[in-house]
């Protein structure tokens, strides 16, 4: 039986790896994937902290977050595709025209 401490530590390590990726990677798609990794670390944290009470509501919460994340990935990739069609580039440094 795994304790929830182990899972919470694993989730925080994964979260920080995803944070490093978001900061150092300049490719827009890889940055979006790192955001996905951070989101998954958060979901793992929810599951890990629900291990003490074993409430099935936590799983339903994680399930809905997963479904929303699917929609979010679709919209994010659509925005990247549109920006690539306009700028012919996926480098986030060249997306600075989206600032204003």
């Amino acid at each position: 039986m795994i304790s929830s401490t182990h899972i919470l530590i694993l989730s925080s390590i994964l979260f920080s790896i995803g944070l490093i990726g978001v900061i150092i990677r300049r490719n827009a798609i890889v940055a979006l994937m790192c955001v996905e990794l951070m989101l998954n670390a958060g979901l793992l944290g929810i599951i890990g902290s629900s291990l003490t009470t074993r409430d099935p509501s936590a799983q339903i919460l994680v399930l809905f977050i997963m479904l929303i994340a699917a929609a979010e990935v679709a919209v994010g990739l659509a925005i990247i595709v549109m920006a690539f069609q306009h700028l012919r580039d996926t480098d986030l440094d060249n997306y600075s025209s989206m600032k204003w």
Binding site: L8, S12, F15, S16, I23, T52
Partner: peptide, 22 residues
């Protein structure tokens, strides 16, 4: 980035309550 996320990870890990496997 490595410094920032290392600090964040240590803060999170140090704030985790130590649960016994129940």
């Amino acid at each position: 980035a490595i410094l920032t996320s290392g600090v964040i990870a240590t803060i999170i890990i140090s704030r985790i309550d130590r649960f016994a496997p129940s």
